[in-house]
Amino acid sequence: MKITIENNEAKFLFRIADTSLILAQRMAELCSNAPFLEEDIAISNCSLDLFGRAEELYKIIATIEGNKFTPDDYVFRRNEREFFNIKLVEQPNEDFAWTITRQFMHDVWAKEVFTQLSSSKNEELVGLCSKVLKEIEYSLLHSRDWMYRLGLGTEESNKRTQDAIDHLLKYVEEIFNFDDLDKEYFSDCANIERVWQEEINRVFSEINIERKEIQPLSMRDFRDGFHSEHIGHLLSIMQYLPRAYPDAKWS
């Protein structure tokens, strides 16, 4: 099955939908593996919100594309180069600081993204945004509070958080290299970057984290389906069952 994308709006929405999906899968890896029971449930809850968000977005995409493919096709039948998530969210759960930092950086971005999409011309998308913004508000409370605990916690937690940030910042620059599609469907691209930089710098300065000059990796853009090496491993686990048993059905 070769998945095709014909409409510009669908092409644009894949960036948002895939970002939600891949982050959801990364967080789902922590189900039963989080540092303690309550956090396990908290992370799994956020993961489920993200899976739900991705599914709704794939449904909207499917409608735009004339229902040639289902959300399951989009999730399970595409290869690496056919995913358009930001590289930040495919980075692994190296330790808890990575998980939280990745989440925080994503949530700050997502809040402004969905705020702008809530004035979209697509009514289904607007309806989804009001629900999603509440979820993001909560997720942001969770990830931001943890940034403070880790940054201001112990010498060890501060060091690990600084390491996570230094690594993850390498994948941020591409997010703000907006192209014509972004400019067509976001109401104010420049504001996405402005809001993100302000909030990230504000929090870092309050938690004894240094915002170093990070050289971005010279990798090609996620908008063209380019990834870090981690995506293949993630997809191989996520897609294993329907790839191995193509006739399997949800029951």
């Binding site: 309550e38 956090e39 908290a42 809850n45 909560y138 409370l141 509070d145 605990r149």
Partner: peptide, 20 residues
């Protein structure tokens, strides 16, 4: 009950465990 290190964590853990 929940386990937590501070008030905010306690109320968030309680939300995730008991009001979902």
């Amino acid at each position: 009950s929940v386990r937590a290190y501070d008030k905010k964590m306690a109320i968030q853990n309680a939300r995730d465990l008991y009001t979902r």
